[in-house]
Amino acid sequence: MQVTLKIFRYNPEADKRGHYETYTVEADETERILDLLELIKGHMDGTLAFRRSCAHGVCGSDAMRINGKNSLACKTLVRDVGERITVEPLLGLRVLKDLIVDMEPFFDNYKKVLPYFINDTPLPENGRERLQSPEQRARFDDTTKCILCAACTTSCPSYWASGDYLGPAALVAAHRFVFDSRDQAAAERMQIVSETSGLARCHTIYNCTMACPRDIQITKAIGELKDLSVTGKLE
């Protein structure tokens, strides 16, 4: 079948502002949007710039807006979006070139929530693992799936409106550690996410949950952090 892609283009070395270009390619309905971008780059316009690596939805490189929805280009098939496809960069982060956005503010926010395991108590005397029951492990399973693709954060109207908002992805990272029974820095993290640039900026819009290519229940995770910030009780 013939598929038409309307792709946002911006060359910082030549263009004052972005524009769209349209490409028509022959494609199968089971092909990934990433496959089509590769085809266009390989045969029609080598200057088209986008990030990609694993090509099956686990590395988080190729988050972009496909027909208006934040998606991974490698996890979206032609049959999911139809024959007329609009491809644009993520919103809320500066466009550097074509579909490539500036990821630095995103990773800066991630780093603010102490996104690493903290437990300074002595290790078990036998040197073995710290014990954790399957139930305790399940408590934070969902938020360990995050691949930092930024699809959630850049779908959030609160993030678009205020660049100082930590954003859903950083809160997901906080959740992953706060609810890990082995971690001991929940209080510090809760203090960070309870500041005005944190939980208070989430207005339960659910865009993040809809956008997550890993199906993480992000709004629920943020809700659990909000509950904790009110009750102070880590269950």
Partner: peptide, 16 residues
């Protein structure tokens, strides 16, 4: 890796 916080799945006894 476990001591660094890696969330391995667990046995009923809480081991890796």
């Amino acid at each position: 890796l476990e001591h660094m916080g890696l969330p391995f799945d667990r046995t009923p006894e809480g081991k890796i």
